[in-house]
Design a protein around this nucleic acid. Sequence first.
DNA 1: ACTGTATTTGGTTATTATGGAAAATAAGAA
DNA 2: TTCTTATTTTCCATAATAACCAAATACAGT
Lengths: 107, 107
Amino acid sequence: MNKQMLQRYATRAEILKALAHPTRLFLVDRLSRREHCVCELVELVGVDFSTVSKHLSILKNAGFVTDEKRGLKVFYRLRCPCVADFFRCVDTVLRLNAEEKLASLSK
Amino acid sequence: MNKQMLQRYATRAEILKALAHPTRLFLVDRLSRREHCVCELVELVGVDFSTVSKHLSILKNAGFVTDEKRGLKVFYRLRCPCVADFFRCVDTVLRLNAEEKLASLSK
DNA sequence: ACTGTATTTGGTTATTATGGAAAATAAGAA
DNA sequence: TTCTTATTTTCCATAATAACCAAATACAGT
């Protein structure tokens, strides 16, 4: 793999990495329904607010969400509905895995 | 987030994490065209064979690929064509990011 | 059984990611 | 201005990841 190709895949890996964390998946799932301020998300997730804030900034840097400050609060919303594609594929893989496990049991 | 929900998102995050590495993305991309034995992939990637082997086992554990031993060689193939969805979404996000950067320049 | 080839596994080390505590920043209210 | 709330950033300790080398395993051919 040469430099250019490596860079190409590295860029894509960065995007995926941003999503590859339980808390961040949860955040994306929530934001896919409606916007939320950070304080609401902190409540929902149940970890330190600094942790939530950092997760949100990772999602923002990757381009999955955008933020908007209104008064004291910062509201985050999903930027790209295509994230549903991810969930769909992940669930397909999970289903395949489960089916295979089932099949291996009944042999 | 309660235990059960956390587990649900953690499982999905594991699947995504398996894909979130430049080399593994490259491997999946190659395997999406046709099966390859490990030695071919080692050639293509250009890192140590033990490293490639470990990446493949991560992809296998996640359920993205399956392997089959034929003689001395082990052949890997893609298990789920839905991986194309990932690439599509990732590229959409990348395009959005690039468009935004462009727009911010012409302001 | 012995040899050579293909692959996996274990060990080591360097790098990166994670999460909480505390400090810094931002903005509305008193 | 001072106080309070919301959020981000910095610092630090800990855990997870990734790469290579070396050793182990698997297997076909002699």
